[in-house]
């Protein structure tokens, strides 16, 4: 779990993924790979296979939801806006890390004693809050965190028994799975695609697809687990401890049935407990890549995470290892039997 911890502790909102890239580059250097980059911020590694064998792309996005500094108040506070969707209701009284130097900051609210009745029951929007790094005045704030500085939640990754607590499992869990899967031996060509800017609309996906034109793309994601109070069963996207999540459809793509069935069958034959994504919601890079280069068949395998897009998420160790096993088993099967039709 050391690598997962490094990945999750790294800061990387859309457009500011440098630290995450460095963690991944270092890991792959240790395996003997050279990094390939493009002009947008994507990162790739290629393991060449035998000619005639399918070219399989494993994709995960580097970015997490976060904030960026858009201004400074006279008292030295940082005005921020969110990058990627973050519910206003998780913002109150939280710790953040500012910039690549990871300065400490806090997002604090008005004391309850000073709120009137209406305020007390209303959501406090982000624009009414600011990040406090302890700067004495505007000049000190600007010096330490100029315009455009990125900000992420400050959450330490920890193991709680059979569950891991941390931030940004969406999609560092996916990145981690790819790092592990690329260690396997196969005759297929494996293309590790770490894309940027997914949370802002799958920005890097198109360039990745067009550059490598894979025969199949496997999207490794972190999806929301819905097995909590207040969520009716038919609206639960997935359950923690239920195994890796296989998508049949989301708002961006209908997974081609033959490929989804092959993936499911692989899970069954390898005795890996899996679950369907229970809601037709959200979208992934697969939705963006499916039309490129004449059409690319895509499947999506995800880890169920509670409380994604908030400061603290939970993921089950069993679901993560299941995800790696399923990915490897699927690649092995494609190597042996080729792609459907």
């Amino acid at each position: 779990m050391e690598l997962l911890k490094k990945l999750c502790d790294a800061s990387g909102p859309p457009g500011y993924e440098e630290e995450v890239r460095q963690v991944i580059i270092e890991h792959f250097k240790g395996l003997g790979f050279e990094p390939i980059t493009d002009h947008t911020g994507n990162l790739f590694f290629v393991k060449e296979g035998k000619p005639g064998k399918p070219r399989i792309m494993l994709d995960a996005h580097l970015d997490e939801v976060g904030f960026e500094v858009i201004g400074h108040s006279g008292d030295g506070d940082l005005r921020v806006k969110s990058i990627g969707g973050i519910d206003d209701r998780v913002l109150g009284a939280k710790h953040v890390l500012v910039g690549s130097k990871k300065l400490k900051g806090v997002l604090g609210m008005k004391a309850p004693h000073n709120q009137d009745h209406n305020e007390y029951y209303a959501v406090v929007p982000l624009k009414a809050l600011a990040v406090d790094i302890g700067a004495k005045d505007k000049a000190e704030a600007e010096k330490n965190a100029p315009l455009g500085t990125h900000v992420v939640f400050d959450t330490v990754t920890e193991e709680w028994g059979d569950v891991i607590k941390g931030k940004s499992f969406d999609d560092r869990a996916g990145c981690w799975v790819i790092c592990k899967a690329m260690e396997m031996t196969t005759d297929c060509t494996l293309i590790a695609s770490f894309t940027f800017g997914e949370e802002l609309g799958m920005l890097g996906a198109k360039f990745s697809a067009r550059r490598f034109a894979p025969d199949i793309m496997i999207s490794l994601e972190g999806t929301s687990a819905g097995d909590m109070p207040e969520v009716p069963e038919h609206q639960q996207c997935s359950k923690m401890h239920g195994g890796p999540v296989i998508t049949f459809e989301d708002k961006s793509i209908i997974i081609p049935r033959a490929y989804r069935e092959m993936l499911e069958d692989t899970a069954k034959k390898s005795k890996i407990e899996y679950q369907y994504k229970g809601t037709v919601t959200g979208g992934t890079n697969a939705g963006r890549m499916q039309f490129e280069t004449g059409g690319i068949p895509c499947v999506v395998i995800a880890a169920p995470c509670r409380y994604i897009h908030s400061p603290v998420s939970l993921v089950a160790k069993k679901d993560l290892t299941g995800m790696i096993e399923l990915t490897k088993a699927f690649i092995t099967r494609i190597d042996k039997e080729g792609l459907p039709q």
Partner: peptide, 18 residues
């Protein structure tokens, strides 16, 4: 950890605190 609703169930523009 104190939990939150999954993103697809959060209604944007909902002004009431949970």
């Amino acid at each position: 950890v104190i939990g939150i609703l999954p993103p697809h169930l959060q209604k944007p523009g909902d002004k009431k605190a949970i």
